[in-house]
């Protein structure tokens, strides 16, 4: 069953003549329970697509269908609750002067939900945090714990879709492993659909079933996890990104004639 369907989606920033088209006409479908990845370098438009799906970027054209419902630029509360965004920076995405409990209570108040304390306790348990963390302030928490709080906040409205914007790129390797495992568990337990934005193909291949590789606002190719792991991707740019996640590729050292032959760069 298709849960997200985007057709001819284009997103721009700014108005009139100076408008900057960041995403140019992309179409994709995501099945229920699937994890779809968006990969590319900075400025390729991957986070912008996520923003348009989340309701953050309102300047888009084309059509977006979420859970069988066509979405307009303005959304109702119910439509907003269907998908929730998890941000990259766990230090900037939680209100610094609210306790964790208050942060989790806020969405429940907005949506007039009942059994509030019960829901908060459940979601804290779900993301693996002790219950007394609800009385703490974000500055008392580590980066990994904060990211768990951010995931808890996204989950508390019981959304069907989680939009993950580089959820582990600000974290240490060992913490990244914990968060990736948590995301896998939650996906299974809560029957969630994910869209994961990342620049690291290894992370994407770990979590995603299918990946769209993006370059300057468009899709270069959509590869399956199998293709990535078996190294049978089509596009050379995908290979470049795959090499990047493996580390540095030594070039043969032949003085600076070698240096010059590499592709020069503009600002």
């Amino acid at each position: 069953m298709t849960i997200i369907k985007a057709q001819h989606l284009a997103v721009s920033y700014g108005h009139g003549e100076t408008a900057l088209k960041v995403v140019k006409d992309v179409s994709f479908e995501v099945q229920k329970g699937e994890t779809f990845g968006l990969v590319g370098e900075s400025g390729c438009g991957k986070s912008t697509i996520l923003g348009a799906l989340a309701g953050r970027n309102k300047q888009w054209t084309g059509s977006i269908e979420i859970d069988g419902e066509t979405i307009g630029q303005k959304r109702t509360r119910t439509q907003l609750a269907k998908q929730q965004l998890v941000f990259q920076d766990p230090f900037g995405s939680i209100h610094p002067r609210h306790t964790i409990g208050r942060t989790l209570l806020e969405p429940l108040e907005i949506h007039g939900k009942d059994r509030r304390q019960e829901r908060i306790e459940k979601v804290l348990t779900d993301v693996g945090l002790p219950l007394n963390f609800r009385y703490r302030y974000p500055h008392q928490l580590s980066g990994g714990q904060r990211q768990r709080v951010a995931i808890a906040r996204a989950l508390i409205l019981e959304p069907k879709i989680l939009l993950l914007d580089e959820p582990t790129s600000a974290l240490d390797v060992s913490i990244q492993a914990e968060i990736l495992n948590l995301l896998k568990d939650l996906r299974e337990r809560e029957k969630l659909t994910y869209i994961l934005v990342s620049h690291d193909l290894a992370v994407v291949a770990h979590l995603c079933d299918r990946v769209a590789i993006m370059q300057s606002g468009g899709f270069v190719e959509i590869a399956t996890r199998q293709q990535l792991l078996e190294n049978t991707v089509q596009h050379p740019y995908t290979r470049v990104l795959m090499d990047g996640s493996r580390g540095y590729v030594a070039t043969t050292r032949q003085g600076h004639s070698q240096l010059r032959s590499q592709s020069p760069v503009t600002v």
């Binding site: 609750a81 941000f87 995405s93 939680i94 610094p96 969405p107």
Partner: peptide
């Protein structure tokens, strides 16, 4: 800030964001 955007994406209105999120800061 991301936490203000997060509140917006959860459906918080202008009054709530000003009083609950901006005032304490």
């Amino acid at each position: 800030a991301d936490f203000v955007v997060a509140a917006e994406l959860q459906g918080a209105g202008v009054g709530r964001i000003l009083l609950r999120h901006i005032v304490p800061l």
